[in-house]
Nucleic acid binder design. Structure first.
Length: 285
DNA sequence: AAGGTAACCTGACTGC
DNA sequence: TGCAGTCAGGTTACCT
């Protein structure tokens, strides 16, 4: 589910079905998401043309040219449990299908049991969408050429918190959620509790490289499930990578066979291999 | 100002 | 079978 790769795969999945098409109607069945859905959304988007889609962090952005000539951006966040699907016009909405965008030949449907996700409307007359309060605070994109080991090192130098929490905080880099934070630290053989400020230049270089690789691999993997975005009945559109540590408490490490351990950092589960990812104290001892 | 914590909400699963 | 408890892939508001 929704870390950056899943959001990107969702975007790739829905984009061909909605781009250059006109929204005929919008049905908001439940506006109570993380933030209330704009009450005038249906009116604003009536007969709006979808020009293209993009993404910023975990926000999927749908760029619209409205009937009145104004333009704007639909900002969709999937939260913990959100998903998007392309359904046929006659497919009845299921429980937790909160919003429909109806086109001539299909429906874009937002589904989110926990309602931690959100749907914002940003009118460009109110300024550049990248200046939106939800977007402006986000860190650098992992695939940006400026996201490098040097960038990471500079951001880490003054941070006392653990690298696991640092990666999740979203201001060093966006899009890395709990699963990929655990997995990338395993790949780099870095203990999750290592203080950001204690990371070496080499570790930061490696982290930057592996974050790009891991997310790219996950997107590629998700690409094979793109067909599931159309007319699927059940929960689909998501995919599961082969995890080395995430959710594998007690199972043997794929590298050294030691049992994977679970701990809690900032109220989130962290999984790691105590042998492959030794605590820094052990390194210096 | 950074860092910790509770909160938002439902469903799936575990153990008694 | 039922019920209580735990956990879940994210993010923000509020407190120290």
């Amino acid at each position: 589910m929704p870390e950056l790769p899943e959001v990107e795969v969702a975007r790739l999945g829905i984009s061909p079905h909605i781009t250059h098409k006109t929204v005929r109607s919008v049905e908001v069945r439940n506006p109570s998401l993380r933030w209330p859905v704009e009450p005038k959304l249906a009116k604003i988007l009536h007969n709006a043309l979808i020009t293209h889609t993009s993404r910023r962090g975990k926000y999927l952005l749908v760029h619209c040219l409205c009937h009145d000539g104004a333009s704007g951006v639909l900002m969709i966040h999937l939260g913990m449990s959100g998903s998007l699907r392309i359904a046929s016009l006659d497919a009845a909405p299921q429980k937790h299908d909160h919003i429909d965008w109806v086109f001539d030949d299909c429906v874009l449907r937002y589904h989110d049991p926990r309602r931690f996700g959100s749907v914002h409307w940003h009118d460009v007359r109110d300024g550049d969408y990248l200046q939106h309060p939800r977007l402006i605070q986000l860190g650098i994109e992992p695939f940006d050429a400026l996201f490098t080991g040097a960038h990471l090192l500079a951001r880490c130098r003054t941070r006392k918190m653990s690298i696991k929490q640092g990666l999740l905080s979203g201001d060093m880099v966006v899009g890395v959620g709990n699963i990929y934070a655990c997995e990338v630290l395993f790949r780099c053989k870095i203990h999750p509790e290592t203080a950001c400020a204690d990371l070496t230049r080499a570790q930061c270089e490696q982290l930057a490289v592996q974050i790009k690789h891991l997310l790219q691999e996950a997107i590629a993997q998700g690409g094979s499930t793109l067909k599931d975005f159309v007319n699927s009945d059940g929960a689909s559109g998501y995919f599961q990578m082969h995890y080395n540590v995430y959710g594998r408490t007690g199972a043997p490490c794929h590298a050294c066979a030691a049992p994977i351990m679970r701990m809690v950092q900032g109220q989130r589960a962290t999984f790691f291999c105590p042998v492959c990812q030794p605590a820094s104290k052990a390194i210096h001892a």
